[in-house]
Computed example of a mutant assay.
Amino acid sequence: MRLLALSAVVLALTSCAAPPATAGPAVVLPPAHAGFDYQIGGPYPPAADVAVVTRDHGVAPAPGRYNICYVNAFQVQPGAEAEWDADLLLRDADGEVVYDGDWGEALLDLRTADKRARIADRVGGWIDGCAAKGYQAVEPDNYDSYTRAPEGLLTPEHAKALHTLLSARAHDKGLAIAQKNTVELAGDREAVGVDFAVAEECGQHEECGDYVAAFGDHVIVIEYTEEGLATACAGWGGRLSVVLRDLDVLPADDPAHVRRTC
């Protein structure tokens, strides 16, 4: 009788227990050393040698390719400041919005957990949209925005904390997620949850080997100069995806469009 009673208690407790946690959808990384095209300046039909394409989150992926979805996650698109809550724009000691001087993009304020959560919720909506459209991965840009903030307003820890939230959101949707540039944080890739790297001008700056040390062959290289392309191809053209693009990443029908590979 005691055994029967004990069995009944165990059964009751088991039936009331929370179900075990389940892992999110499995992610698939872009194929290494594959033909690549960077189309964030406007979509166009990929060349026959292209297996991997990056496009802006506002457009559809390229049919029949592995697609990476671009989102500006740490800065604001030029002219879009009013689309963000005013307190999410980083401000200097005089209360002026801090801008990336090269591209005219306001920096986002990553300094508190609350602000990071709100930024991640908005960018996360774009990530959800990428998954719904059929993308396989996401590329959050301007991870290194802290290097453009004056007076130490932003730190690497702020950037890593936001990226960790974005990585979780992407993985929950079954998307792989890239680390964009920021080679100095490549050693933290596992803690941040990034799966592969997208490195602009690592040939030009002789940094490709540092990315490979952290990510193996899962590095996509974008160069904007002939010199950078030559260096990337000579050192890594047999292992990595390498492409030369024009700086404005223009569509193929624009006279200033450039795309070449090793």
Rank of each mutant, 00 (worst) to 15 (best):
A5T: 15
L6S: 14
V10T: 14
C16V: 14
A17V: 08
P19V: 13
G24T: 05
V28T: 13
L29I: 05
Y38K: 08
I40F: 03
G41T: 10
G42H: 02
D49A: 15
A51F: 06
H57W: 14
G58E: 10
V59N: 01
P61C: 04
N67A: 05
N67E: 01
Y70L: 01
Q77P: 01
Q77K: 03
L88Y: 10
R91W: 10
D100S: 11
L110P: 00
T112N: 04
D114V: 12
D114N: 08
K115C: 10
R116F: 06
W126N: 07
A131E: 08
Q136W: 06
R148D: 14
E157D: 15
K160Y: 14
L162D: 07
L162N: 08
H163K: 11
A168W: 06
D172N: 09
K173A: 15
G174V: 10
A178R: 00
N181H: 07
V183G: 02
L185Q: 13
A186Y: 11
R189M: 07
C202K: 04
E206P: 07
A214V: 04
G216K: 08
E223L: 05
E226Y: 04
L229Q: 04
L229N: 02
C233F: 05
R239H: 13
R239W: 05
H257D: 14
R259Q: 13
R260F: 07
